[in-house]
Write a protein that binds this DNA or RNA. Structure first.
Lengths: 228, 228
DNA sequence: TTCAAAACATGACAATTGTCAGTTCATCCT
DNA sequence: AGGATGAACTGACAATTGTCATGTTTTGAA
């Protein structure tokens, strides 16, 4: 069985601040799950008794709004830890996590995390730093959502996807999202997202092959995103 | 001079997890500032060498978007600690803090905070919990901003103001914001905010006396906010 | 008090975005 | 292969929201 001490993922997340003993404990209590595309890791309102460490694949973190639409708040990939916020504040999950790809995740029981937090200041500070970073990102999203047009947000989404998930050998975005998911990231109607994507294709900003999308004119897209 | 140990504000924030000695150190190094309405506490991009503890008045935390408009991300009142996120992640401030009222704030130098974080797990965890809470709130704001109409967001803003800042003896919202600030909280044009406020008055949802606004039909407003 | 500046308000119009209805295309199952 | 299903797309139209122009009220400083 794989051991946390050797997990390459550790370098990406706060687990690196754990001592050997603490890691051993996590390793002994953790379990690994394989999830198929579309499967749900946890849902909004669910009480979490642990966190999920993403070893492979991509998860969308979303929240249902009162009008019945799903808003994707964040996309989490290798190294991300899901559910940490809820475990720390001892509240039910306020987001749902769904596999966008086939995924592999480790489940780490709550106690292993909470006990380490309370005894190891390095770990607590490391987690704190991560959360501070997430909070900054969330604030930036708020500003973008409220001040940018849908077109600007779609442009930004493509740049985000390229920056965070990279491209394949043909230059296409490595992460392929459905038009509906793109709309839910951007916070618009699916039809609006589709129309804007078509327009971007006509303008030569992006190209598509099936569902795969590639950025053609990165500068044009970036200019559009900031409103030039 | 007032001492942190006795500061009533302490019960609202993470400082309560500090030991007597730690608090004494904070008390010895802190300085108090009085700010007039409109004055700036710190600006986006500024390097902060400490945090600000709000003793009185209200501050708006805002960020300039690329199109030149200011988005108010959060309103902070008595007990809030400003700049904590930037100090923890050792980055420049990503928000500006401005006094909405006359304010009184304590400045606590960075080192007093950082040293305590590194040595006192209780304090670190307490700060972490606060940040986890802020992150949840930020996620909720993202969903509201992207999925609700401007009208729903204005309705929600009034409910938020009543819930968080209360009402005066005549029932008017204790915190009076300019129409422009309301528009910047909601993420819309000032004219749009004004129109919606006028409409709410006509519908009998709110009433106004000068700049002061009072909620008349709380249920009607709440229904509108969730889209009934 | 008085006047200038700022804040508030409204109208008219354009631009953006959402909704509904329908068509085409891809995928997957047996 | 054929058909069923869902995703992708398009058109038409309505609703929402932003912008510009302009008038009114409030505020604050001389």
């Amino acid at each position: 069985m794989s051991r946390c001490e050797n997990c390459i993922i550790r370098q990406f997340n706060s687990l690196r601040a754990m001592s050997k003993e603490e890691l051993k404990r996590v390793s002994d209590t953790k379990t690994t799950k394989i999830l198929k595309k579309g499967e749900i890791i946890f849902e909004e309102g669910e009480k979490l008794n642990g966190v999920f460490c993403v070893r492979g694949g991509v998860s969308k973190l979303s929240k249902l709004s009162s009008n019945g639409k799903d808003q994707i708040v964040k996309l989490a990939t290798k190294g991300a830890v899901l559910g940490q916020r809820s475990v720390i504040s001892e509240e039910v999950a306020n987001l749902s996590a769904t596999a966008v790809n086939d995924m592999e995740v480790c489940f780490i029981p709550k106690d292993a995390i909470v006990d380490t937090l309370n005894s190891n200041p390095n770990f607590a500070v490391e987690v704190l730093r991560h959360m501070a970073h997430d909070l900054k990102e969330a604030d930036d999203v708020i500003v973008n959502m409220s001040q940018k047009t849908v077109k600007q947000r779609v442009a930004e989404a493509f740049i985000y996807l390229e920056d965070n998930f990279g491209v394949d050998d043909k230059g296409y975005l490595a992460l392929t999202l459905s038009r509906e998911d793109i709309a839910n990231v951007v916070g618009t109607a699916t039809e609006s997202a589709i129309r804007i994507i078509s327009e971007f294709k006509k303008l030569g900003l992006i190209k598509a092959s099936g569902k795969k999308i590639a950025i053609v004119d990165a500068k044009g897209l970036a200019d559009l995103a900031v409103g030039i």
